[in-house]
């Protein structure tokens, strides 16, 4: 059975020093969003899939932004990876489905991406569950102890 890679489609990769790359423009946009974050605290987000990136632009952008200290792997209906780039406040969020295929990719300019945060409502629910579990343990302890 032939694999997809055996269909002889030749992909032309633009050389590193080629003129038409979207990355410089993208970096300017990230800069503008970051400045906005500093000035007013407003978050920004760029949908990487909506841009006409050339093959290799992804890698070029990642190389230019560098790697930061945070690399979080989430398990939410498929994997999601949240990494802070070498530029503080610029995060790279990759959403994948249950089969590991990337379904969305964002650059988030924020103090911490929304998806990492815990929602206050969930905290209240969590507290209720914990209290219920503690109560259970108490009861078991009583029946065991005596």
């Amino acid at each position: 059975m032939n694999g997809l890679d055996q269909i002889g489609v030749r992909v032309v990769t633009a050389p590193d020093d080629a003129a038409p790359s979207y990355v410089p423009a993208l970096l300017r946009e990230i800069e503008a969003l970051l400045a906005e974050l500093v000035a007013s605290g407003r978050n920004g987000r760029i949908d990487l899939r909506s841009l006409p990136l050339l093959p290799g632009d992804d890698a070029r952008l990642a190389a230019l932004l560098g790697e930061g200290e945070v690399d979080a792997a989430l398990e939410v209906t498929g994997g999601t990876r949240v990494r802070e780039t070498g530029v503080a406040g610029v995060w790279w969020v990759t959403h994948a489905n249950a089969d590991g295929e990337t379904v969305a990719e964002f650059i988030e300019v924020t103090l911490v991406p929304e998806i990492l945060k815990t929602h206050p409502q969930d905290v209240r629910v969590g507290l209720t569950h914990l209290r219920a579990r503690l109560a259970e343990q108490m009861q078991e302890g009583e029946s065991d102890g005596e």
Binding site: D47, T77, A104, F106, E114, I115
Partner: peptide, 9 residues
């Protein structure tokens, strides 16, 4: 939230 992010994209 992930679903909504994917949908907006």
């Amino acid at each position: 939230l992930k679903f909504c992010a994917t949908m907006t994209s």
